[in-house]
């Protein structure tokens, strides 16, 4: 069994997109941090990840294996909106 998973990561507005292969032990928060850095997303925002296949907002502390992420899954990254 492979210890990595190939996924598509993209922003919710689909202006940024990447096909990546990641170790299954990668945490969701590491995916978010990488995306934020690689795509120069504003760093005064917090982000969350949505697994498109299940419509779940993934627990940032989980790794990809325990979050149930599979090959060819799409993970959408979206900001947590704080203004009122």
């Amino acid at each position: 069994m492979s210890d990595s998973v190939s996924i598509i990561a993209r922003t919710a507005d689909q202006t940024r997109k990447a096909a990546v292969s990641l170790p299954l032990q990668t945490t969701v928060s590491q995916v978010l941090e990488q995306a934020q850095q690689q795509w120069n997303l504003p760093n005064d925002h917090d982000y969350a990840a949505r697994l498109e296949r299940t419509n779940e907002q993934l627990d940032s502390a989980s790794d990809l294996a325990s979050a149930g992420v599979q090959n060819d899954d799409v993970i959408e990254i979206f900001p947590i909106l704080k203004a009122g």
Binding site: A12, Q14, E56
Partner: peptide, 20 residues
């Protein structure tokens, strides 16, 4: 559950937040 909505460009979805 949460609704996320973006007006420009148009994007919307609903997510279920995982209970810890």
């Amino acid at each position: 559950e949460k609704i996320y909505l973006e007006l420009t460009p148009w994007t919307t979805f609903k997510v279920a937040i995982n209970r810890r």
